[in-house]
Simulated assay, not measured.
Amino acid sequence: MKGDWYDELVEVFYYNVKEFDGNIHSRVKGVDIVIDDDIWWKFIGLKNEVFKEHILEVGMSEGHRVPYGVFISKVLEHYGVDFTNEKKQICGRENLIGKATLTCIGMKRTSQG
């Protein structure tokens, strides 16, 4: 996923992340965030099984880099989180996830892409 992200807000998202009713929940700047199957499908065209566990694992551990910054930032924007005065990170070539990483986390090509 290409685009810019707001790393401090993404960190807040991960700090507050939890699972409830099979969905990812968080709270950022007073806005409740729910990542359910509709959100997964809308933004990346996949169901949640691939990334959900990894996002929850990162949220529960300390010292990890916070992955999926562009995705999380787009979800925050979708929910109306205020980005005023927030520092934006520019996505460059060094921020892209390669094919080997996607394979390592269980991503596989299917008939649906």
Results as ranks from 00 to 15, higher is better:
Arg65Met: 13
Asn48Lys: 08
Tyr15Gly: 00
Leu56Phe: 00
Asn48Trp: 04
Glu19Ile: 00
Met60Ala: 14
Val31Ile: 15
Tyr6Ala: 01
Gly3Ala: 05
Arg109Leu: 15
Tyr15Trp: 04
Tyr15Met: 01
Gly59Pro: 03
Cys104Ala: 15
Thr110Met: 12
Gly69Leu: 03
Asp82Asn: 14
Asp4Lys: 11
Gly63Asp: 04
Asp36Thr: 03
His25Trp: 13
Tyr14Gly: 01
His54Thr: 10
Glu8Asp: 15
Trp40Phe: 11
Thr103Gln: 15
Asp21Pro: 04
Lys2Pro: 12
Tyr15Leu: 02
Ile44Tyr: 00
Val28Phe: 02
Glu11Phe: 05
Gly30Glu: 06
Lys108Glu: 13
His25Met: 11
Ile35Leu: 10
Asn95Gln: 05
Glu86Gln: 14
Val66His: 12
Ile33Gln: 09
Val31Cys: 13
Gly45Ala: 00
Pro67Ile: 01
Trp40Leu: 05
Leu96Gln: 07
Ala100Phe: 08
Gly69His: 02
Phe20Val: 06
Leu46Val: 00
Lys18Tyr: 12
Met1Tyr: 02
Ile72Met: 07
Trp41His: 03
Thr103Cys: 14
Lys42Asn: 13
Tyr79Arg: 09
Gly3Asp: 08
Trp40Ser: 07
Lys42Asp: 09
Val58Arg: 07
Phe83Asp: 07
Met107Ser: 07
Phe20His: 12
Asn95Cys: 05
Thr84Arg: 15
Asp37His: 07
Arg93Glu: 12
Tyr68Phe: 11
Gly92Lys: 14
Lys29Cys: 03
Ile33Leu: 10
Trp40His: 09
Lys42Ser: 10
Phe20Tyr: 11
Gly45Asp: 01
Gln112Met: 12
Leu96Asn: 02
Gly113Thr: 06
Leu46His: 00
Lys87His: 02
Ser61His: 14
Lys99Phe: 14
His64Asn: 15
Ser73Ile: 03
Lys99Arg: 14
Thr84Cys: 13
Asp21Arg: 12
Lys42Arg: 14
Glu19Cys: 00
Met1Ser: 05
Lys2His: 14
Glu94His: 15
Lys88Glu: 07
Thr110Val: 14
Thr103Val: 15
Asp36Phe: 06
Ile44Leu: 00
Leu102Glu: 13
Ile97Val: 01
Val34Gly: 02
Tyr6Pro: 02
Phe20Ile: 06
Asn95Gly: 05
Met107Leu: 10
Phe20Leu: 11
Gly63Cys: 04
Val12Ala: 04
Arg65Pro: 12
Val17Tyr: 03
Lys52Val: 01
Ser73Val: 04
Ser26Phe: 07
Trp5Asn: 06
Lys47Ala: 04
Phe20Asp: 11
Asp38Asn: 11
Asp36Ala: 03
Arg27Lys: 13
Asp37Ala: 10
Lys88Phe: 02
Glu49Lys: 06
Thr84Asn: 15
Ile35Gly: 08
Val50Ile: 09
Met1Lys: 02
Leu56Gln: 00
Thr110Phe: 13
Asp82Cys: 08
Asp32Pro: 03
His78Cys: 07
Val28Lys: 01
Cys104Pro: 09
Tyr14His: 01
Ile24Met: 05
Asp38His: 09
Glu94Ser: 15
Asn48Val: 07
Lys47Trp: 04
His25Glu: 13
His64Ile: 10
Gly30Phe: 09
Ile55His: 02
Gln89Cys: 08
Ile55Gly: 01
Tyr79Asp: 09
Cys104Tyr: 15
Gly92Asn: 15
Met60Glu: 14
Asn48Met: 07
Gly69Glu: 01
Gly63Tyr: 04
Lys99Val: 13
Asp37Leu: 06
Arg109Phe: 15
Val66Cys: 10
